[in-house]
């Protein structure tokens, strides 16, 4: 398997605040890398031959690439908005395709069944029609006007509410969710899923959040998001096939899956196929 155009994209490889000089040994697309701080305290990433890789520190994480990124890392303007709390949730290793991890994050229909009584509950299982597009000007997938009833939409929510969502795919393994902010209805909470592809069927997932929530203890915010993702992990690790199919021949996607279909179309258009299954089997 060749990595193809995904070689030149940015990927998260660690939490900047947790780095030390000794560094963190990890993998990126099958290549061993070391993520560390240099003598000046800046992040430094080297590959197995000692070659320095491109580095960017943003959204609490260190980002790198095995290739030569053609674009700067995508922008999240809310990351610079005063008053938000930034939450480095940590890392969850998942034995699945990195593309599968992103696709699962985009899927609303599983909420009542996987995150029962938190992000969804029966009988509120219907996904209402919403809008999906590939925005040519920014080359991103966006799903907007998404609404779903949630018993506990966030740690700061005191009861069930109909939550508004917007989903954004900003990179092949990076996605951003904007959702109703219970304590501040005019703003969006930002919850991201940054995925580090270790191999085609193995990834480290680094959720990160930018919230308006002055009350909830940080450990509770982290615990809430980790609980959600650990529920997802058991589903993700049992999906067949392990890789993300770009040909839906063995599946029957519905209108509720339009975000997933748009994501797969976008991957296909860019030939982002590391972690994908090209032909239905």
């Amino acid at each position: 398997m060749t990595v193809g155009p995904m070689f030149d994209e940015w990927y998260p490889v660690g939490i900047f605040g947790q780095l030390d000089a000794a560094g963190r040994k990890t993998m990126l697309m099958g290549e061993p890398i070391v993520v560390a701080r240099d003598d000046n305290g800046d992040a430094k990433v080297t590959d197995g031959t000692g070659r320095s890789l491109p580095v960017c520190v943003r959204y609490g994480h260190v980002w790198t690439s095995l290739g030569d990124p053609k674009k700067k890392l995508f922008a999240i303007p809310e990351a610079d908005q005063p008053g938000r709390r930034f939450v480095d949730v940590g890392v969850v290793r998942v034995r699945c395709s990195p593309l599968r991890a992103v696709e699962n994050f985009l899927d609303i229909a599983h909420f009542p069944f996987v995150h029962t009584d938190i992000l969804g509950a029966e009988p509120h299982t219907e996904v209402q029609a919403y809008k999906v597009e590939i925005r040519e000007d920014v080359d991103e997938v966006w799903a907007t006007q998404v609404e779903f009833y949630q018993p506990q939409a966030a740690k700061s929510a005191s009861g069930g509410i109909t939550t508004q969502y917007m989903y954004r795919v900003a990179g092949p393994t990076s996605t951003v969710l904007y959702k109703t902010c219970p304590p501040r209805p005019s703003e969006w909470d930002v919850i991201t899923l940054f995925v580090q592809p270790l191999a085609e069927d193995l990834c480290d997932v680094w959720p990160w959040m930018a919230l308006f929530d002055d009350d909830t203890p940080m450990t509770d915010l982290i615990h809430f998001q980790q609980t959600i993702f650990l529920q997802d992990r058991s589903i993700l690790e049992n999906q067949v096939p392990r890789l993300l199919p770009l040909d839906p021949g063995m599946e029957m996607p519905t209108r509720a899956d339009l975000t997933s279909v748009a994501y797969r179309r976008w991957l296909k258009r860019h030939n982002f196929t590391y972690g994908a299954q090209l032909v239905a089997q």
Binding site: L246, D247, P248, E251, M252, P253, R255, L258, R265
Partner: peptide, 18 residues
């Protein structure tokens, strides 16, 4: 609903068409 599903499937289609 089934014609809808055919449309959604065709939107992605096999790997060698766009």
């Amino acid at each position: 609903e089934l014609i809808d599903m055919l449309e959604v499937g065709c939107l992605l289609g096999p790997i060698d068409v766009w």
